[in-house]
């Protein structure tokens, strides 16, 4: 509690001096609004639901893309982690595709899907699949070989082996990859919306800026800050993989 108090001294001073200097006419920049106006705009946006609708749209796309990336990345990662030969074949391709910035595919995705959720989710999935894939490969490679031999002698099929041995054994490390990817998913979704997709928080931000509603723009920035903080706290405490995999670890 004490630490929170000490930590909030600086932001409080900053906000206070911002408010005072803009009210006294010391600050007249168009790109700056007053903290009190921002707060009012934020409350108004929450009250009329516009911020929540935009948040819902962004989350929907980010989670959709993330889910596709998680399923694809974990399955492909498990297969590649189990087969050194296949990994040698695929690895150069992965290393060639991975460094391409996901947002560079926006024009292509737009041509393929048009505006909307599919286009955005595809970009998100592309950005998220790499950390998940790479972490899963290394996690599966690190599995105790004895456990795979146990699966062999029990004549488990691939799905059983994946569900009962490989994923639980690689769980802790895959979870790290999923956490990294969740952060990426939100960033990429908002970016795609800012660049051109007419939906979600990124688009609202652009709309506010273009209609010179600086107060709304700041309110939404603040809201993104809150979302990011809460999401990170959630991931640190629960972890997406524990939800997905909790049933396997009986």
């Amino acid at each position: 509690m004490k630490r929170i108090l000490i930590g909030s001294i600086l932001p409080a001073l900053f906000i206070a001096s911002w408010e005072i200097s803009s009210r006294t006419g010391l600050l007249t920049l168009e790109s700056l609004s007053r903290p009190s106006d921002i707060l009012r705009a934020g409350i108004a946006g929450l009250a009329d639901g516009s911020i929540l609708v935009a948040t819902g749209q962004t989350f929907e796309t980010a989670l959709f893309g993330l889910a596709v990336a998680a399923v694809a990345g974990i399955i492909a990662g498990a297969v590649l982690g189990l087969s050194p030969v296949l990994e040698r074949v695929v690895d150069p391709t992965i290393e060639a595709l991975r460094p391409i910035p996901a947002v560079a595919f926006i024009p292509l995705a737009l041509m393929m899907f048009g505006f909307g959720i599919s286009m955005e989710a595809t970009i998100v999935a592309y950005a998220c699949v790499w950390p998940i894939l790479i972490v899963t490969i290394s996690a599966v490679k690190a599995i105790e070989p004895r456990l795979l031999e146990v699966a062999d002698t029990l004549e488990m099929n691939f799905v059983e082996r994946l569900r009962k041995i490989i994923l639980p054994a690689a769980f802790v490390r895959i979870n790290v990859g999923l956490r990294v990817a969740t952060g990426i998913a939100l960033v990429v979704a908002v970016t795609v919306e800012i660049v051109l997709n007419p939906r979600g928080l990124g688009y609202s931000l652009m709309l506010a800026q273009q209609s010179l509603r600086v107060d709304i723009m700041y309110a939404q920035l603040l809201w993104l800050c809150v979302i990011g903080y809460v999401l990170n706290a959630l991931l640190r405490n629960i972890g997406p993989a524990s939800i997905v995999l909790s049933r396997a670890g009986r």
Partner: peptide, 10 residues
């Protein structure tokens, strides 16, 4: 090596 042959999460 029984410790490696058992599933530690079960």
């Amino acid at each position: 090596d029984y410790s490696k042959a058992l599933l530690p999460w079960r």
